[in-house]
């Protein structure tokens, strides 16, 4: 793929011995956390912003970080609209990137409405965080890179990602097409309470959630994008939608920090929980994945909206739910 001027880097593809041991097949981690903006979002957004004069982006945080970084590099003003559900530390980080931050509404959908309004009234380029073909094209580069790192002899048995509004999903689908891997299953992870994709897949149509109740705020779009839903309906693709609880996502974040020494967001923890909470094994038991699985490619999507204090808060909040509501998460919530 040709990108005029890109802002993302070729991230390391690392084999995780610890995770491989758990799954029983080699696990490769695509370390998107090491992108300059801290998440994969820079790929698509860098690609999209090439012809802008000033941008406005609605975001739970990470798309905003990517947009702000790209704008700074291009010498453009950036306004990032975030919902009040995004943690305080996101505001500081965005401002450090030189962006103007506006807080609007409770969840991303509210912030997005404000961003669209600003685009209209101020004549700014609207940067959607997940719903645009140029974003998908930008994100697709991660699969091309992974294929190059793995070499011609290795093809993954499955790709694990998390789904918010579905931009990453669409990008990965395109990336798999680009390298001729359309038969590789995609395991699309969400948390319970930020499950717009899973709900749509089950209903067979787009569904708008009433509210976002998960702590994985960056997965919290109320409606998945049309294209992501269409991909889920394609017969030539194998997209498996799975849910984990917030507790499972948090547990994954903690385990990953201890074992791989990288702190990621809950949004990313959802994908990691596919390994740590036995989703892969379950899919193998159900014969939805082969028992002898080729290597697993896990997209470590990253995320900036987390620090040790935030992690402690999440632990406190989710563990106190444990005592009241023990049974809702002890068993993984399977679809």
């Amino acid at each position: 793929m040709i990108m005029a001027n890109h802002f993302h880097i070729n991230t390391p593809l690392l084999e995780s011995v610890n995770m491989s041991k758990r799954v029983g097949t080699t696990v490769y981690l695509k370390m998107e956390n090491s992108q300059p903006s801290g998440s994969f979002k820079i790929r698509g957004i860098g690609h999209l912003c090439q012809q802008s004069k000033g941008i406005v982006c609605s975001s739970g945080g990470n798309a905003g970080m990517a947009a702000a970084l790209v704008a700074r590099k291009m010498g453009l003003p950036a306004t990032i609209v975030i919902p009040s559900s995004s943690p305080e530390l996101v505001v500081q980080r965005l401002q450090d990137q030189g962006a103007t931050v506006k807080i609007s509404g409770k969840v991303w959908d509210d912030a997005n409405a404000e961003a669209l309004r600003l685009a209209e009234t101020e004549g700014l380029t609207y940067v959607p965080p997940f719903d645009h073909p140029l974003l998908w094209q930008g994100h697709a580069s991660m699969i091309a890179e992974a294929a190059a790192s793995l070499g011609p002899d290795v093809k993954p048995g499955a790709v694990v990602i998390s789904v918010g509004g579905g931009g990453l999903l669409c990008g990965v689908v395109q990336g798999l097409q680009d390298v001729g891997w359309t038969d590789v299953p995609i395991i699309a992870m969400e948390t319970d309470g930020a499950n717009c994709f899973n709900t749509a897949v089950k209903a067979g149509r787009l569904v708008t959630l009433d509210d976002i109740t998960s702590e994985a705020k960056c997965l919290g779009a109320k409606t998945v994008c049309q294209k992501a839903f269409e991909q889920s309906q394609r017969k030539d693709l194998n997209i498996i939608s799975e849910l984990v609880s917030d507790q499972q996502a948090l547990h994954a974040v903690q385990t990953f920090l201890d074992e791989e020494r990288v702190l990621v967001e809950m949004a990313c923890g959802a994908a990691l929980a596919a390994v740590y909470s036995g989703i892969i094994r379950k899919l193998q038991d159900e014969s939805r994945l082969p028992a002898l699985l080729r290597p697993l490619l896990v997209i470590v999507c990253g995320g900036s909206s987390i620090n040790m204090e935030q992690l402690a808060n999440l632990k406190h909040k989710l563990n106190s739910m444990l005592t009241f509501n023990e049974h809702s998460f002890i068993k993984p919530i399977y679809t």
């Binding site: 880097i9 991230t11 390391p12 593809l13 370390m31 090491s34 992108q35 980080r93 450090d96 990137q97």
Partner: peptide, 11 residues
Amino acid sequence: HVASPLRQSLP
């Protein structure tokens, strides 16, 4: 080894 990422740290 891999060519490791190089990035600016704002903090």
